[in-house]
Design a protein around this nucleic acid. Sequence first.
DNA 1: TTGATATGAAACCATTTGGTTGTATATAAT
DNA 2: ATTATATACAACCAAATGGTTTCATATCAA
Lengths: 107, 107
Amino acid sequence: MGEPIAKYDVFQAISDPTRRKMLRLLADAEMPITAISGHFPMSRTAVSKHLRILSEAGLVKERRVGRENRFRLSAEPLRELQEWYSYFERFWDNKLAALQRYVESED
Amino acid sequence: MGEPIAKYDVFQAISDPTRRKMLRLLADAEMPITAISGHFPMSRTAVSKHLRILSEAGLVKERRVGRENRFRLSAEPLRELQEWYSYFERFWDNKLAALQRYVESED
DNA sequence: TTGATATGAAACCATTTGGTTGTATATAAT
DNA sequence: ATTATATACAACCAAATGGTTTCATATCAA
């Protein structure tokens, strides 16, 4: 059959400030859970759960290296976010954004 | 003092699919709660609660007209979403978006 | 004035969310 | 072989979320 229905979509995944910070953190470096955990005032388990949610939304990829589980950003699903809000851009008269979409949509 | 701390931010407000649909609905017309309610398979009270959340996030404005409470979109807070998202645009090599930000940031 | 309409507000409920601690297991280092 | 490290997994918990129903109140229409 098709794709398994993902429990978490992008909108839900980024609704939590901790997870938004995680995405920023993982944008520039691949990191194992313990290292990531050092950046947040919560247990490693809690961090792990957030990463699981981000993973289900496709926003991070994991790779097993020895006993470590290294995570890195996978930004592509964020495009859905852009698609959604682009509908509203006309309300702040963003001419250049409109132009950009127009130019890039001709394929 | 400054602004009262808003309970709901934009990210949380749009994390719910019902609320995202509401914003679309209110983009083109100002509507009272009962009319809005007709578009969703839930009680008027539930709709009202969603509108309250959108209101706290600044995404809708309400105006009392007689016994009606009319809502309309207030898209401006979505800029925050755009700002956040723009950080990640470099990951899909979006030259035009970069150009756009560059041009629009010179004020 | 009497009734219908539009909304607000309170109480309640099940599920989800974001966190915890404790235990188990695989891998790496001494 | 033993110990330390990195993670997973299960159980638990309080608070938030998304919904309901019931009742009160303000306004409009006949």
